[in-house]
Amino acid sequence: MVAKGWRILHLPTEVGGNGYGLSRGERAHGLRSDVLVAFGSSFGFPADRTLYTGPSANRLVYWGRRLNLVREFLGLRDAYDVYHFNFATTLLDPHGTGNLADLPFYGRDSLKVFTFNGCDARQKYPTMRRCDYSACHQEDCYGGVCNDGKRDAHRARRIRKVDRYADLIFALNPDLFWTLPERTEFLPYTISTWDRLAERTPAASGPLHVVHAPSNRACKGSGAVIGVMERLARESGGRIRFTLVENISNDEALRIYARADLLIDQLYVGWYGAIAVEAMKMGVPVLSFIRDEDLRFIPTGMARDCRELFSPVTVDTLEPVLRTIFDTPGELRRTAGKALDYVHAWHDPAKVARTVLDRYEAAFAAKSGRQPYRSEGV
């Protein structure tokens, strides 16, 4: 049975609010679960402790912060039973530029758990060899930082080190399984705002409001989204309104999603992101490109429900898909209901945490040589 005395620490990034959402799910099961973020971002995702917000160009400040990270590490490396690292980073390697030097030195009897979130595992040229349509095919994706191939090699080295030291490895995106160790397990997104997001009340009248919120335009196919939506909005004679959401906090973005009738997530990556989960939790339908061949890596039931929920869409088919949606009375309302059912079935933090706690339990059992407790599920 899951030990109520476990101390769990999620660290050191806030990517998408996933660690905080999972932590609150673990707390719902009576566990002590904390979130430590080394460097916060402008998105403003919550944490129990955030050491610093944003970088500093001052070298003295930089080295002072590095020294303080070492002090933090020495103070916490034996303080928890589970260290759950996000975005393949550790406290002394929070930006992912080093070689996870501190990874071997967390408590000997503790669990070391990793969640890969996206481009911490995704590799450009293996992806391009495997398929002919992806974000990795876009030369300007995140400014082309992966184009020379060096990041592929760097990520592969880090994955090998994680595989050597980690007791458990999770991935949030199905496409990551092509480059991660075979023992990797799929983990649905959890979001930090789950408990405070209510189903929105659709406007009785007014234009249909479509929202797109790219973290990176090239990665998300935003050029196509903007072009199609601006054209459809002009043709609609005021029946369609389009909002591009960028460079604002998560709280500000959520207020815009709550007034949307449809959210377009991404058209290249092959899965949906945390913003899609946030939107679906509010009853906002989502369009997102789903790569069917990657669904082999997720639970069978989730793959079935995903295929039923998400309309097949790419850069080339976005416009006809949108025209069909807009010209079909009641389609957005029906899809909103299915999105709510889907998000509650697969992304409820308490349900996701139940699965993760069972995996912690099995990993502790493997360390001690005893048989793990088997949960009946939620």
Rank of each mutant, 00 (worst) to 15 (best):
S236G: 11
P207C: 07
H212C: 07
F186N: 11
T179V: 15
H209K: 13
L176A: 04
V211Y: 05
L180H: 09
I240D: 05
V225E: 00
A213S: 15
N250V: 00
T179E: 14
V211I: 11
G223E: 11
S222N: 06
A213E: 02
Y189K: 01
F177C: 04
P207Y: 12
H212Q: 03
E185M: 15
R234C: 03
R200V: 05
G221A: 12
R241W: 03
T201H: 13
P214Q: 03
S205L: 00
Y189H: 15
E199T: 13
A213F: 05
E230A: 03
E252D: 15
I169N: 03
G206R: 08
L197S: 02
G221D: 01
Y257W: 09
E185V: 05
R241N: 09
L244D: 07
I256S: 05
M229T: 10
A203S: 15
G206I: 06
K161M: 14
T201D: 13
R231T: 14
S215T: 15
G227H: 14
G237V: 11
L176Y: 09
P188F: 00
L187G: 02
G221F: 06
I226C: 10
R196Q: 06
V210A: 03
L244Y: 08
N250D: 04
G238M: 10
S236P: 09
L208W: 09
C219M: 10
K220S: 05
A224D: 09
P181A: 13
R241F: 08
V245D: 07
V211F: 04
E252S: 13
E199A: 10
S222T: 15
F242P: 08
N250Q: 13
S215C: 05
S222W: 06
K161N: 01
H209I: 05
R200Y: 03
A198L: 08
Y257D: 05
P202A: 05
E235L: 15
L208K: 10
R196Y: 01
P214F: 05
S222A: 10
I191T: 10
L244V: 11
P214I: 04
V211G: 02
D163W: 06
A233W: 00
I169S: 09
R217I: 07
P174I: 07
L180M: 12
L208C: 10
G237W: 07
F177R: 14
N216R: 01
E235D: 14
T184A: 15
P207Q: 08
R231K: 15
T179P: 01
S215H: 08
F186K: 12
E235S: 13
V228G: 03
A213N: 08
D163N: 15
E182Q: 14
W194Q: 04
L197H: 06
E199M: 06
L168E: 11
D175A: 12
A253V: 02
I159S: 11
I226K: 07
P188M: 01
G221W: 02
Y257R: 01
E185G: 06
E252I: 02
R158N: 07
A204T: 10
L168R: 14
A171D: 04
A224P: 01
L168V: 14
N173G: 03
